[in-house]
Design a protein around this nucleic acid. Sequence first.
DNA 1: CCAAAAGTGTTATGACTACACCCATGA
DNA 2: TCATGGGTGTAGTCATAACACTTTTGG
Lengths: 228, 228
Amino acid sequence: MKSTNSKTNKYKHAVIAVDTVVFALDKNSLQVLLIQMKKKPYTKFWAAPGGLIGGAESLEKAVVRVLKNKTGMAPEYFEQLYTFGDVNRDPFGRVVSVAYLVPLQNLTIKIKTSGQYQDIKWFPIKKLPALAYDHRAIISKGLERLRAKLEYSNIACKMIPKDFTLTDLQKAYEIILDKKLDKRNFRKKIMALKLVKATKNFDTSKPNRPAQLFVAASSQVNMTRVLS
Amino acid sequence: MKSTNSKTNKYKHAVIAVDTVVFALDKNSLQVLLIQMKKKPYTKFWAAPGGLIGGAESLEKAVVRVLKNKTGMAPEYFEQLYTFGDVNRDPFGRVVSVAYLVPLQNLTIKIKTSGQYQDIKWFPIKKLPALAYDHRAIISKGLERLRAKLEYSNIACKMIPKDFTLTDLQKAYEIILDKKLDKRNFRKKIMALKLVKATKNFDTSKPNRPAQLFVAASSQVNMTRVLS
DNA sequence: CCAAAAGTGTTATGACTACACCCATGA
DNA sequence: TCATGGGTGTAGTCATAACACTTTTGG
């Protein structure tokens, strides 16, 4: 979302917005948070949550504010993705948008429908609706980044409960990467990278052998990659 | 460099700039292009070349324009690095700056000293002068990206002559990474990644066995990395 | 004792490291 | 023929991929 007020003059000053690619995991799919627009020419089109930055507001603060407004929640982690600055990306005026990747831990956020929007909803990444602006490219960039960071960071831990079984973690990887992984190799790799650490607790909620619970090794989404 | 005109009001509208981290290779060192500022409080401080974007100008166009103005040359390749948006990063006003990484092929560019600046000069990355704004962080991010991309792209080919010997290429890697590499392993890796292709020509300019000349396998700085 | 998911080890293959000598040329 | 840099192969180590059975629990 950009240029929320239509007073923005085309080509006078470029204004700055943030857009958020908010991901969360469903049982079987990766979901993206989208809002439905009211204004022409994007009536009924969907867009990533976003908004113009305030004059005394950092980009990060703007991301927090936008997410608070739209979802009522403060994300634990987010990172900058890319900046989109094509001249005609927004028909309402010249808007440069800094996109952020926001992995969320659950889908049960309280969603606020403001006057500006028709609706706000989760969509499976594989079945996106018609998207406004260049938001398909933005979401695509978000997915690419998220997938890449699975390989060498604990970013997936931001999308599942704080303590989790290795099977939970593997499922998260499988859903995001959209492919099956080998259980033994997955565990070896996760352990070798030291992305998680074991707790003394077990998940006894299921009628089978209890699984050991793990937590992220660091609260940071750390780069385990070594540039040798 | 941001907010070149001092009429920018603090906290009224954020304005958008691009800054360029321009790298080139000297015989033995990696060099960064910097301009010396005149305005307080950064008198005599140095900064990465940059400028505000025009209202009808894309970010990429702005990069090209800035480089043309400052160096007289159009870079063959550049890529977006990161966007810096802290509220107080620029004492002249609220400026959000999109930083770009620009690898250049040689140091012999024609340099224009405009009225706004004291001087424009190459500095070895290891001996940077006092830098204005948050430009130390920007340059540091540029170096990090450049080094990372050596591992899986042909970005180094943008910093040496179009055809080059494998020894030339290895030297570029060694200077940028600031470490010695093994000749045989280097060649094996470059060949395995198919970053370059052989020509039929040899460098006969030296009084020893002629070295075969290579060119970049692609004019794109392609990601050879496979996300398996 | 059965169903269900947890947990675990080995082998083969490909990548990376370390390392030393012969080759082709011009002077 | 000498000085200079060009060019090449092998052995050891480590990461990755493929693959199946035993364990623990609740019902």
